[in-house]
Each structure stands twice: as C-alpha cells, then as structure tokens.
Amino acid sequence: MRVGAAIAGVTALVGLTTAAPAGADNDWGINGTYEISSNGQLAKINERFQPQPGERSTWTITTVCSSPSDCAGTVNSDAGWSAPIYTSNGLWYVKRVVPEWRFCADGQPVEGLRVYKIYPVGFDGHYNAASTEYTGENQTLGPSGSCGRNQWPQIRMPFYMKKV
C-alpha cells in the first residue's frame, strides 16, 4: 500500500512540474497579419463554373486555444468587417453575414452567409500544422426561395492565406 501511495505521489509531482502554466503561450492558434485571396476565376455558382469577382484583403487574426482542437478568436479585415474564427475537426472556420450580397431582378437585396473553411498547408500541398500558409474554400450561401427561386444560391471559390 505504501508503494502505491509513493508511486501516486511521484506521478502527481512529475505531472505538476511538466504541465504548462495556465495562460501559457502555445503554437496551436492562428495569430498575426495575413494576406488573403479568393480566386474568382475558378468560382462555381451552384456547381457550375462561372467567373466571379475575387477577393483580396488583409486579415489580422487573434486566437486563444485551450488545446490543439479547441481554439476561438476574431478576424479583423481591412475590408471593414470583423467575424469570429474557430477550429473544428482540423479545419478553421470564419463565418460572417454579407448584407446585400446579391440583388434580385426587382432590386430586392439578398443577404448571404460567407463561410471560409481553411487549413494549414505545406509546400507539397498536404496538411502541415506548422505552416504559415493556409488554403481552403470561400463559400457564400443565400436563402432558398430568394428571388422567387426554390434553390439555395451558392458561390464557392478557392481560398489562400499567407502570413506577412
């Protein structure tokens, strides 16, 4: 019994000395300034290729993580908007509402939900958690029934982000 108590005590002591202090810096999050671009030349509207205006801007990202799979923060774009960023299943998500995303033939505005799905990528195009370059998709989805069509209007295009 004494041996078991001694082992438990040593294990607890080792755990305390090797654990990271609360609020310690880690490399799990995305923090810094990034140049982003979405390639409108490769855009798809409802799964049909059709060139669209691309997107270029600078994002300032701040995140806080409690583990590699639990991070959240904020994206501030030089285009004048802010949105939350979080991670789930190895992907980073940025979601924001785009007011007056499109206009119907009668001039009625339609709002869209823009979702950026991104992940870190290495020089070989494969997932690399240590990379400062990210790739993924920029998708904007409108409400079904907008403009009198029983279809969710959707635009998808490739996305790229690099730390500056």
Rank of each mutant, 00 (worst) to 15 (best):
N46T: 03
T74H: 03
L42G: 01
T63P: 04
T140R: 09
L141M: 13
S57P: 08
T132C: 08
A129K: 00
F103W: 01
Q151V: 15
D78E: 06
S146V: 00
N138M: 09
R102I: 15
V94Q: 01
G32W: 10
G80K: 10
E55C: 10
T132P: 07
Q154H: 11
V75F: 02
P21M: 09
L42H: 09
E137R: 08
N26D: 08
P51Y: 04
A6T: 15
P84A: 14
E133R: 13
N31L: 05
P84G: 15
S146T: 05
H126C: 08
A129S: 12
A6P: 00
T58P: 09
V10C: 00
Q41P: 04
E35L: 04
A129N: 08
R56G: 11
G80V: 13
H126M: 13
S131F: 06
L141D: 14
A12W: 01
W59E: 04
L141E: 07
R48D: 09
G40F: 13
N39P: 03
P84Q: 12
L91V: 03
E47R: 12
G80F: 03
V3Y: 09
T60H: 06
F103Y: 15
A20L: 11
R96V: 03
Q108K: 15
K163A: 04
H126G: 08
V10H: 03
R56T: 09
Q108F: 15
N31H: 06
S69I: 13
S77I: 08
S69E: 02
R156N: 13
A79K: 05
R149S: 01
G23W: 00
L141S: 12
D106F: 01
P153T: 10
D106G: 04
S144Y: 14
A20P: 07
C104P: 12
A6V: 14
I155H: 06
Q52D: 02
R114G: 04
I155G: 02
Q139R: 15
S67D: 04
N150M: 12
W152T: 15
N89M: 08
G4C: 08
G32L: 08
A72E: 12
G32R: 05
R56F: 06
V94W: 03
V110M: 09
G32M: 06
W28S: 01
V164P: 11
V115P: 11
R2M: 05
T63V: 12
G148R: 03
A20D: 01
M157K: 15
P120L: 00
A20R: 11
I45D: 01
A22N: 11
